[in-house]
């Protein structure tokens, strides 16, 4: 029973991941992006859970709970909390939505092409879905390059991180619990530190446009 719906579940989860990533490129509002990031965290947790059930390993299921807590609830909550506490500025990205979505399509195609070369011999379901992870890495990078505000950049960074996690879970069937714990805490720490920096930037310059950060101080 589960074997028959397993490919569909994997497809559903990865589809949700790709969709949320693409929507993040499309939406400019920071809060909307944070909500999408939360949905993406849930989708990633679901993906991990599906893999865990398929392989019958409790450890992976525990990892999925951890992912849910950190990426689905924890990080978006931290981001949303900080964003609401300060004045909101909407993003004016360097790429308009149409061009952004076109680029996303191109990047997805590229990742499928690359993955078809790299995973040529692997015909398992999860290997078929792996290009989505690669596409998320590229989309995250695209967000990093095109967004001006420090907060939006942080979201790009997190999408990139989610992409890496997706590739890891799909190709190797998950990472050990301790490793995942460590990585999650690292990401959490990075986000907190970056947010503190963004807050100080705002206090100092009045906004968080990183284009203004060009000169080094002695």
């Amino acid at each position: 029973m589960f074997d028959t719906i397993y490919p569909q579940l994997i497809g559903l989860c990865t589809g949700a991941l790709l969709l949320t990533s693409a929507l993040m490129v499309w939406r400019h509002s920071l809060l909307a992006s944070i909500r999408l990031l939360s949905v993406q965290g849930f989708a990633l947790a679901a993906l991990v859970a599906v893999i865990g059930v398929e392989e019958g390993e409790t450890e992976v299921i525990i990892v999925s709970v951890l992912v849910l807590l950190v990426k689905g609830i924890g990080l978006p909550w931290v981001l949303a909390h900080e964003t609401q506490a300060t004045t909101r500025t909407d993003e004016a990205p360097r790429l308009n939505p149409t061009a952004g979505l076109l680029t996303v399509a191109l990047l997805t195609i590229l990742s499928y092409v690359v993955a078809s070369r790299l995973l040529a011999g692997d015909s398992s379901v999860s290997a078929h879905a792996a290009p989505i992870g690669l596409a998320m890495v590229l989309i995250g990078f695209l967000l990093l390059v095109t967004r001006r505000q420090a907060g939006s950049q942080l979201i790009g960074f997190l999408v990139l991180d989610n992409g890496i996690a997706t590739v890891a879970f799909l190709t190797s069937g998950g990472v050990p619990l301790f490793l995942e714990l460590g990585i999650s805490l690292d990401v959490l720490l990075v986000v907190v530190i970056l947010y503190v920096f963004a807050g100080r930037m705002r206090n100092k310059f009045g906004n968080t446009d990183i284009d203004q950060l060009r000169k080094l101080h002695d």
């Binding site: 360097r94 590229l110 990742s111 092409v113 690359v114 078809s116 070369r117 790299l118 590229l138 990078f141 695209l142 990093l144 390059v145 001006r148 990183i210 284009d211 950060l213 060009r214 000169k215 080094l216």
Partner: peptide, 24 residues
């Protein structure tokens, strides 16, 4: 090397894309 973070990020992005394209 004008100090803009976006420019440096773009450099790495382009480098990553080039590697991927060459691989494929």
């Amino acid at each position: 090397q004008n100090g803009s973070i976006h420019r440096y990020l773009s450099y790495s992005f382009v480098a990553l894309l080039s590697v991927l394209i060459v691989v494929s």
